[in-house]
Write a protein that binds this DNA or RNA. Structure first.
Length: 571
DNA sequence: GCCGTTTTCGGCCCGACTGTTTTCAGTCG
């Protein structure tokens, strides 16, 4: 059983407990445990097989550990089944609707017999809710709006989409005179792969006037709430934006608080509690005395910690590292010297080799690898051996005529079902750069998929595994693989792992990068550009690398063209 | 249910806002 499934069960137990009279802390404990399992680098099933005591993990004690054990060995868990029997069906689904918590969900079920989203929608439309005590017309309208948003977005949007909204909003805020400072916090600042909402911190001497100006932003579709401290709106279809006002002495503490993540904040607050201090969005306090708050660095420093880059704030060991001065020196966009994965008109790209080379040169790169598809990807007009030979000749010919950028003659060769490569090995071994990728049979079982990748890695002719997890965010899950085996093979055979910077791929995902780094694997950050402007996806790949704790030395395409050539020399 | 540098018991983050009611419960982040 996968960790995601276990985490879902723990979350469901937590949700069900909310509908009973269980202690709030017990409910939270289940959700905390779910979070731990979800972000665990190894599978619980593998840990158990290795006789690891799961109750050693944070937020998992004897009770939860035994439930996980039961889940893995029996496929289900008695506590879950018992709770499902006790709680009317459908009520946990209702709780997922914004505006509805456990109390209202239960109330709607008991008073109106509502058991599903469809029931809820109909009841709102028929004005049934207003008849229930403590509910009214406005609640009805708000729920209908929530349902529409839920349907449109399934909750979160891609980092790139949210970033585009933030950029537009930023241009507007920039021109409001009364706003002396604003910062975007939240998961966007942490550069998470998907974003639930935007948190904007605002500093202004005249908050009422600033609020009026903010509410004039043309992108606003609906004002969710408005108070002296906070304004919440919905923009561009589905993105909620929360504006919060803070004064300069509070601003750093507020930035820290609203950047999160929640687990990071909780872990941080534990360190605060040990000193008998208090940390909230207004500052770090001893009693009523403010110890820090103007900047984040000041707050961290007062707690004996180095400033932690937002991308690391996930409670994955960054606090200990900050305490011991061992935080990684994270890779930056400016460290990247070239792109090692792009396509041209020869297959499914839009530009010629020359177009792509020029676009890369304009972006200040020293080198670009041309890596078109192989023949198995028929829909992309993939190259067979004959066409590839000609294509490579063209790349090399152009390379000789170009100044300011070096071209690597490469290919993105398909890794077929059993791990064989889609092109002749002798031909592949004459290329400068070979990316091996999976584009088919994504549903192989874990052992078969692991063997498939390991076989390809051992082929001796690929330099890199392209988009290793095969996922498309929101559409296709990560393939099932024993990653430790794949990483070990990559390390042994000197095969790099790609971080694919396509905004809907971001693959390999950050937590796996951290694990691959620990296994000693080298990385490549690539855009997989299919047109010139796609080369601008590089920052999203760098975001993933940073969230995966990678330093420049872990990333091959931070090195110079000369060093790259040396590193790629065939044995 | 988890956790522990005053603890194996007694804590566990808490402030802002809405809607409905009339002093506050529920929800959210």
């Amino acid at each position: 059983m996968e960790n995601a499934q276990i985490a879902d069960v723990l979350d469901e137990i937590g949700d069900l407990l909310e509908l009973t009279d269980a202690s709030l802390f017990r409910i939270r404990a289940y959700h905390d445990a779910a979070q731990t399992v979800r972000s665990l680098p190894q599978r619980c099933e593998d840990l158990l097989a290795d006789d690891v005591d799961l109750s050693e993990l944070p937020h998992i004690g004897k009770s939860t550990a035994s439930k996980i054990d039961e889940l893995i060995h029996k496929g289900t868990c008695g506590r879950l089944l018992e709770l499902r029997r006790r709680v009317p069906s459908g009520v946990t689904t209702l709780m997922k609707v914004p505006q509805l918590g456990p109390r209202r969900a239960l109330l709607l079920h008991d008073a109106l017999g509502i058991e599903s989203i469809a029931d809820l929608k109909k009841a709102c439309e028929d004005h049934q809710l207003a008849r229930v005590r403590s509910l009214g017309n406005k609640t009805e309208q708000n729920i209908l709006r929530s349902l529409a948003t839920l349907k449109a977005t399934s909750g979160r949007m891609l980092l790139k989409a949210a970033g585009d909204h933030a950029e537009a909003l930023g241009r507007y805020l920039h021109h409001i005179d009364g706003i002396s400072r604003w910062e975007i916090a939240g998961s966007l600042r942490r550069r998470r792969e998907t974003i639930g909402d935007l948190d904007v911190l605002v500093q202004s001497a005249d908050r009422a006037a600033a609020t009026d100006r903010i509410l004039n932003y043309p992108g606003i579709e609906h004002v969710l709430s408005r108070g002296p401290e906070r304004v919440s709106v919905r923009v561009g279809g589905a993105l909620q934006v929360d504006f919060r006002f803070f004064d300069p002495p509070e601003f750093g503490a507020a930035l820290l608080y609203f950047t999160g993540s929640k687990p990071h904040n909780i872990a941080l607050r534990k360190r605060v509690q040990r000193r008998k201090w208090k940390l909230n969005e207004y500052g770090l306090f001893s009693g009523t005395r403010r110890l820090a708050g103007t900047t984040e660095a000041e707050v961290y420093a007062r707690l004996g910690l180095a400033w932690i880059p937002p991308e690391l704030r996930e409670d994955r060991g960054e606090l200990d590292a900050a305490a011991h001065g061992t935080l990684p020196k994270l890779v930056k966009l400016t460290d990247i010297r070239g792109d090692l994965h792009c396509h041209t008109k020869a297959t499914d790209g839009a530009g010629t080799i020359a177009d792509m080379a020029e676009a890369a040169r304009l972006r200040g790169y020293d080198y670009l690898a041309i890596t078109d598809h192989s023949k198995a990807v028929t829909i992309a007009n993939g190259l067979n051996e004959t066409r590839l030979k000609k294509h490579v000749e063209q790349i090399r010919k152009l390379d000789r005529s170009l100044d300011g950028i070096r071209l690597l003659a490469g290919v993105e060769v398909d890794i077929l079902k059993e791990g064989q490569l889609d092109l002749d090995k002798d031909l592949l071994s004459t290329l400068d750069w070979v990316v091996g990728s999976v584009h088919s049979h994504f549903n192989l079982d874990r052992d078969a998929m692991t063997n498939r990748l390991v076989t390809a890695v051992r082929s001796g002719v690929i330099h890199c595994l392209g988009h290793p997890g095969g996922r498309i965010i929101g559409r296709r899950d990560l393939i099932q693989v024993d990653w430790d085996k794949v990483f070990a093979a990559c390390k042994e055979h000197g095969v790099r792992i790609e971080i694919n910077a396509q905004p809907d791929r971001l693959d390999l995902p950050d937590t796996y990068c951290q694990r691959a780094k620990a296994a000693g694997v080298e990385f490549v950050i690539s855009t997989d550009a299919h047109k010139e402007s796609d080369l601008d996806y590089m920052p999203f790949g760098v975001d993933v690398a940073r969230r995966g704790w990678l330093e420049p030395g872990n990333v091959l395409n931070t090195c110079t063209a000369a060093k790259l050539r040396k590193a790629l020399k065939r044995r």
